[in-house]
Design a protein around this nucleic acid. Structure first.
Length: 451
DNA sequence: TTTTGAGTTGTTCGA
DNA sequence: GTCGAACAACTCAAA
């Protein structure tokens, strides 16, 4: 026990229930907590995520100070920085499973040799541990979930007595106000708040006008909470708890899928769907990005993305279906845009869910399932409150008209102070026509693959 | 090896 | 207004 260790924090910015931290502080006499600002990842992150990251780093640094140490922050390519900073120390980290992370970690591990100690701290059941009877990775969610719920879990050990280094490196960079308060304790507060209302989750989860979801996606992205901590707190006793924990299972499913099928980060799971003749119209894409499609629920969602970096899950599906199916724009364009701007932007989850909506992925939605943005809006934002919050120019329209302003009469529009095609856009596509166009396009791709 | 049952989140149409 | 069927066959996972 004269060893020193480095814990390389990446997306596990917490001390509690952290296998790399728990093991390093048990094994070694002294521990250097390291975070490497990777310019490649920072270049792909929008302001929302960058600010959230900085806030979480500051929170972690604060928690380490109460342990008598500091978070050592360095900048550069981790493949160079981690071996340089660690010297001859052992290096501990929790794995990530995207193609980029695996390449990077493989290169670092190759340089460090047997000084590397890798753990799994960001999923409940690590990729590769749940396999079908024939030893293959699952491609269907339901049988995966049955295994997932029945399999015992492994917790991280409690932290040991190692001394924590006080060298802060360059220190935590400055950032603007984050969407969520930074650090592990703030995340635990969010978990407590959600635990109090999880019983309502099955009935309220689809309502973007209510604040009924956990809002823990960014904590899972950055690891200020581990999924095990969440599962332990929420439990699986009630219907609401099970419905929510099932979402953690989806998260593990998509982590396992991108680990087993890394090509899905770039291409469709099913090769025939790489042959879809996307329209990829730049003007349509710009209108979608800017929240000016003329469909209020779509525009509200895209403006929430720009404003907060977070969007309600139901609305993510609606805007994604609209981009891919109504506008026939390549799901990768949407995936890239989401990944940049989402505070919880996570390659495995983002790719998995975009491929689900596009019908191109593992266990995806059938291609002929095309969300109707007006029907969805009426069903899940019944009073139009969510739309009014994010599309204020429509705020004066009544419930009967706010979901489809172009169907309103001139009197209602005038009374609400709206001039279509001026103060608010006309729909950039007719949904019924777009739906037909989508079905034909997908059928052509399938037909070509079959012959 | 073959068979069998099952498959996140919808929409539209016609009776 | 309500309800069931069609959408389209296909792949997966387990028995």
């Amino acid at each position: 026990m004269t060893d020193s260790a480095v814990v390389w924090f990446r997306r596990d910015l917490r001390i509690g229930e952290n296998p790399a931290w728990g093991n390093a502080t048990k094994d070694a006499d002294s521990v250097l907590p390291l975070f490497v600002v990777d310019p490649r990842l920072m270049a792909a992150a929008g302001d929302h995520r960058r600010n959230q990251l900085v806030a979480h780093l500051a929170g972690l640094d604060e928690d380490l100070q109460s342990e008598g140490g500091r978070l050592h922050v360095a900048v550069g390519d981790p493949v160079d920085v981690v071996p340089a900073v660690s010297g001859s120390a052992n290096v501990y980290w929790n794995d990530d499973y995207t193609p980029y992370a695996r390449r990077r970690d493989g290169a670092v591990a190759a340089k460090l040799g047997d000084r590397v100690h890798r753990f799994h701290g960001n999923v409940v059941h690590p990729p590769g541990t749940l396999l079908t009877g024939s030893g293959a990775p699952y491609k269907v969610f339901t049988p995966f979930s049955k295994r997932w719920f029945s399999e015992p879990v492994r917790h991280a050990p409690e932290p040991g007595p190692a001394a924590v280094s006080v060298d802060p490196g360059i220190g935590v960079p400055d950032g603007d106000e984050p969407l969520m308060a930074g650090g592990e304790r703030a995340a635990l507060d969010r978990l407590e708040a959600f635990a109090a209302v999880v019983g309502d989750y099955p009935t309220t989860r689809d309502r973007p006008d209510l604040d009924a979801t956990s809002r823990l996606s960014a904590d899972l992205k950055f690891g200020t909470l581990s999924p095990l901590q969440i599962m332990d707190r929420i439990g699986t006793e009630t219907d609401g708890a099970r419905a929510f924990v099932r979402q953690l299972c989806w998260r593990d499913f998509y982590a396992a899928v991108i680990d087993a099928f890394p090509h899905t980060a770039q291409r469709a799971m099913r090769p025939e769907y790489d042959g879809i003749e996307w329209r990829n119209d730049d003007d349509d894409f710009s209108a979608w990005c800017a929240g000016r499609t003329g469909y209020p629920i779509v525009d509200a969602g895209m403006r929430q993305l720009a404003g907060e970096g977070w969007v309600h899950n139901r609305v993510r599906m609606i805007v994604a279906s609209f981009l891919v199916k109504d506008l026939l724009i390549d799901w990768r364009w949407g995936e890239r845009f989401f990944r940049r701007w989402l505070v919880d932007g996570d390659v495995a989850q983002n790719v998995g869910n975009w491929q689900w909506v596009a019908g191109t992925g593992v266990d995806a939605a059938p291609y002929f399932r095309v969300f109707n943005p007006v029907t969805q809006s009426k069903k899940f934002d019944p009073s139009g409150e969510y739309i009014r919050r994010w599309v204020p120019e429509l705020a004066e329209l009544g419930n009967a008209h706010i979901h489809a302003p172009w169907e309103s009469g001139p009197l209602e529009l005038a009374a609400a102070g709206i001039t279509l095609d001026d103060t608010y856009p006309l729909p950039i596509v007719d949904h019924a026509e777009a739906r037909e166009r989508c079905l034909e396009t997908y059928q052509r791709a399938r037909g070509r693959a079959g012959t």
